[in-house]
């Protein structure tokens, strides 16, 4: 059983929190310190972003963190080198998130092998479309045991959601709205009916809601409407202060407990 399935089997409450942060931000070599800090503070699983110069699905906070990370010298080569120690320090599921061109230059097969070697569970590549994945890369991901996580937006049709479900293995990343990252989520009737529409499809994969979740209230609503919720920009903003490692426990507590 993979790490994510284990997590959902062991945890019965509706309080599962995933945290995104950009590797190499604010400093090049703190990737594992932040990951370890997050696990200790109670985060349930992680997305570690690898930076790209042109992150078109991201808002200003993650754009900024990506730019700084690149200036600091973060690349996939550097990241995988850092992650060699991952499974000595972190036991929760870890997914890498970033844009396709960086993966393509690193080599898709090599990327999957590197993920498998260091104990990364899967990848989220927002601009790798379903058609390409299925035609060219699905076999490579599968043979290396790496999950590819797809995004679903409010405009994604039921048929397409089902198709995405059939290609997914761990979870589906449900976008809270059609928006770039870091916008403030306001839960509305329209949004709840969208969450319910997706739930009613009885998908095989877990549904995790992300984009626009920044506080206890919208975390509870999102995690309650799905299997878990992801916080990105709101956490990355915490990393701007000098004592960011010390701030992690309080941040996680404030999200989970209010």
């Amino acid at each position: 059983m993979n790490r994510l399935a284990q997590l959902f089997n062991n945890k019965k409450d509706k309080n599962i929190l995933s945290i995104y942060f950009t590797a190499g931000y604010p400093h090049l070599n703190n990737t594992l310190d932040i990951a370890e800090g997050l696990e200790k503070a109670g985060a349930d699983f992680l997305e570690i972003g690898f930076p790209y110069s042109d992150p078109l699905a991201d808002g200003p906070v993650i754009q900024h963190s990506s730019q700084v990370a690149l200036q600091n010298g973060m690349t996939l080569e550097v990241l995988f080198e850092q992650l060699k120690e991952l499974r000595k320090r972190v036991s929760i599921p870890v997914y890498l998130m970033g844009y396709f061109n960086t993966v393509y230059q690193y080599g898709v097969e090599r990327f999957c092998k590197s993920c498998a070697e260091v104990g990364v569970d899967g990848a989220i590549i927002p601009d790798l479309p379903m058609y390409e994945y299925e035609e060219l890369y699905e076999d490579i991901f599968k043979s290396n045991g790496i999950s590819n996580v797809f995004l679903v937006s409010p405009q994604t049709t039921d048929d397409r959601v089902r198709k995405i479900d059939s290609l997914s293995t761990d979870f589906i990343y449900l976008l809270s709205s059609s928006a770039t990252t870091g916008k403030d989520l306001k839960v509305s009737d329209e949004r709840l009916s969208y969450f319910q529409r997706i739930k009613a499809l009885n998908l095989n994969n877990r549904i995790v809601i992300g984009f626009g979740i920044s506080n206890h209230d919208n975390f509870k609503q999102a995690a309650g409407a799905a299997d878990a919720a992801i916080i990105g920009s709101a956490f990355v903003r915490q990393l701007e202060s000098d004592d960011y490692l010390q701030r992690i426990p309080e941040f996680i507590r404030s999200i989970k407990e209010g």
């Binding site: 390409e132 995004l151 994604t156 049709t157």
Partner: peptide
């Protein structure tokens, strides 16, 4: 060519 776009742009 192709269409390497995030799901939000797909529709």
């Amino acid at each position: 060519g192709g269409a390497y776009i995030p799901e939000m742009l797909y529709p």
